[in-house]
């Protein structure tokens, strides 16, 4: 066992880093779907916008930590505004079923992806980590990229912040209640339209911030939006709707499947993610940590 761990722990830490990036995508998807019952297939495009913000702001070579933080704040703002815009756009189709929502948001995603391709080209754009975290750190004698450890720390801090917001504040209670039964929340005098816009904006901002954070690891390229969207949807299905803990657990699990699983079982690489999802659906159809509906 120790030998196995020794041979694979670096891959497992890579999986944690990928997991926290997926968390930044999945939390917004989970809450928007849970609160408004809107399937937002443009969510991956928000991540890609964040990645290209990093390319635009930091693309000229090694950047300072301050420049990186600035790119993060800019992406947060752009993603938040785009999320709020999506909330307004999806309002007319909110009651028309998931197919209409999927078509509308998929259309938005395609337009955004084309605009980004036109602006940045079709090549893979790599970003260096901030100079302060450019080196490596010794982990049990192995050199490991410091930036990935920072991504894990920032991702976990974001998860703790989101948990506190959802579990310990009135706004969080309203979000949870809306996931459970939005019409009943409205009958308590709450304008859930404003709540939904807030959740869309926060989810969009988080996804775009994830794009900046992930740029030095996953780069930026056409098609990245689809990849993270699909993985994000799988995370939501596995974790359960409307749950911060569910999104984190699901994201960390898929992070491991995408790295450790593929490393150990390369022949079955293309089946592992969806195989895991199918297994969870068989055992717990509502996801590992769904919050529950009206009692």
């Amino acid at each position: 066992m120790l030998t196995w761990l020794g041979a694979n722990y670096i891959t497992m830490i890579d999986g944690v880093a990928l997991g926290v990036l997926l968390f930044t995508i999945a939390l917004g998807l989970s809450l928007v779907f849970g609160v408004m019952d809107v399937l937002n297939l443009a969510h991956g495009a928000l991540y890609l916008i964040g990645a290209y913000v990093a390319v635009q702001v930091l693309g000229g070579g090694s950047a300072s930590l301050l420049a990186f933080a600035g790119a993060g704040v800019l992406a947060l703002l752009i993603g938040g505004l785009a999320g709020a815009g999506l909330s307004v756009m999806t309002r007319p189709v909110a009651r028309r079923g998931h197919l209409d929502q999927a078509l509308l948001t998929l259309g938005v995603a395609l337009v955004v992806a084309d605009l980004l391709s036109a602006a940045f080209g079709n090549d893979v754009k790599s970003i260096d980590p901030p100079t302060a975290f450019a080196g490596s750190t010794s982990l049990l004698g192995d050199a490991y990229p410091t930036y990935r450890l920072v991504v894990i720390a920032v991702g976990l801090l974001l998860a703790i912040g989101a948990y506190v917001l959802i579990e310990r504040t009135r706004v969080g209670a309203l979000v949870q209640a809306s996931v459970a039964d939005a019409p009943m929340v409205r009958a308590l005098g709450v304008d859930t339209g404003r709540l939904v816009t807030g959740v869309f904006a926060a989810g969009g901002g988080l996804a775009a911030l994830g794009g900046v954070l992930g740029a030095p690891i996953l780069s930026a390229y056409p098609g990245l939006d689809t990849r993270v969207l699909i993985l994000g949807l799988v995370v939501v299905v596995i974790g359960g709707l409307g749950s911060v803990t569910g999104a984190l657990v699901g994201a960390l699990l898929i992070g491991q499947v995408e790295t450790l699983g593929v490393s150990l079982l390369p022949t079955y690489a293309s089946f592992l993610v969806f195989g895991t999802m199918a297994l969870v659906l068989l055992v717990r159809p509502s996801g590992l940590l769904a919050t529950g509906r009206s009692a």
Binding site: R170, Q176, A177, G292, A295
Partner: peptide, 18 residues
């Protein structure tokens, strides 16, 4: 409402506070 529709994930106090 019929069927009560209390919010399952919230505590009693959470249901009341919102």
């Amino acid at each position: 409402p019929q069927g009560r529709r209390v919010f399952a994930p919230l505590t009693v106090e959470g249901n009341l506070r919102i």
